[in-house]
């Protein structure tokens, strides 16, 4: 009984290391394939379209509503202290530092990450990847790397758009609906948001989350068991693991950047 438990623990630990090792090797192989992919920008543009442009509607609508909710909730709290002029700061800091990168990453994992994993998993199941290898085409170079670059270009852009649209949403709720003074909304924001400390750090988060989300999605698809069940498992795991990774990393990055 005890031996069995310890054996299970040992098995679990070893398989954890094995998965981490496989994921790292996969990451290095993708990185090695990145330079040669830049010689075929058409592939990358096509991926930016399907990963980035098609996620735009989701990102813009969500950003606007998240900003509006921040504006409403912030107003309700601030008005008790007679500090509703600070609404702009509250909305901007929250979006730029935290909600922009994190919510974009979570939406991205659900919208684009799952699609990537399913697509590559199906390619593997229908033996498209192995046929490429037969024809001496490296699937990492032809299939994985363009998606990797496309994702890493798209997601930081989506983060910026989400943040900007969110601030406009906060302005709509605060200034448009609740009657906060427009001048102090923007001027307090400008006085308290720093380009390097806040905006640039938020963008760094966006880039880090992009790498993590795209890596998880591509790896899960590439390593999927080639069955219908395997693809569904890979898709689910992509979203779940991305969410854990993003939220965990966000805590670490916030601790490093803002404390």
């Amino acid at each position: 009984m005890v031996t069995a438990t310890i054996q299970n623990l040992g098995h679990w630990t070893l398989s954890l290391f094995e998965r981490m090792g496989r994921a790292s090797i996969f990451f290095v192989r993708v990185l090695a394939a990145v330079p040669s992919t830049f010689t075929r920008p058409r592939l990358i543009i096509k991926e930016i379209y399907s990963i980035g442009v098609l996620s735009l509607t989701l990102i813009i609508v969500s950003g606007f509503f998240v900003g509006m909710v921040l504006g409403l909730q912030g107003y309700v709290t601030l008005v008790d202290f007679g500090a509703e002029e600070s609404l702009g700061v509250v909305v901007a800091i929250t979006l730029v530092r935290e909600l922009g990168p994190v919510v974009t990453a979570l939406l991205f994992a659900g919208r684009a990450g799952s699609a990537l994993a399913a697509e590559i998993g199906l390619m593997k199941t229908t033996e498209q990847l192995s046929s490429m290898e037969m024809m001496a085409v490296d699937p990492i170079k032809r299939v994985i790397a363009p998606r990797f670059i496309g994702g890493i270009i798209s997601m930081p852009l989506l983060t910026i758009i989400f943040t900007a649209v969110g601030i406009l949403g906060g302005r709509f709720a605060g200034v448009g609906l609740l009657g906060v003074d427009e001048g102090s909304f923007w001027s307090q924001m400008q006085a308290n948001v720093d380009l390097v400390d806040d905006v640039a750090n938020g963008m760094i988060k966006g880039v880090v989350f992009a790498v993590v989300c795209v890596w998880i999605a591509l790896y899960k698809g590439y390593e999927a068991t080639p069955t219908a069940e395997g693809i569904s498992l890979a898709t689910t795991q992509t979203v779940v693991n991305s969410a854990f990774a993003v939220l965990g990393l966000d805590f670490i990055l916030t601790a490093l950047m803002f404390v």
């Binding site: 730029v96 852009l157 758009i161 943040t163 900007a164 601030i167 806040d198």
Partner: peptide, 11 residues
């Protein structure tokens, strides 16, 4: 959007 964040949101 980045331009807006740089010019209008931060100083």
């Amino acid at each position: 959007a980045l331009f807006m964040l740089a010019m209008k949101v931060s100083n």
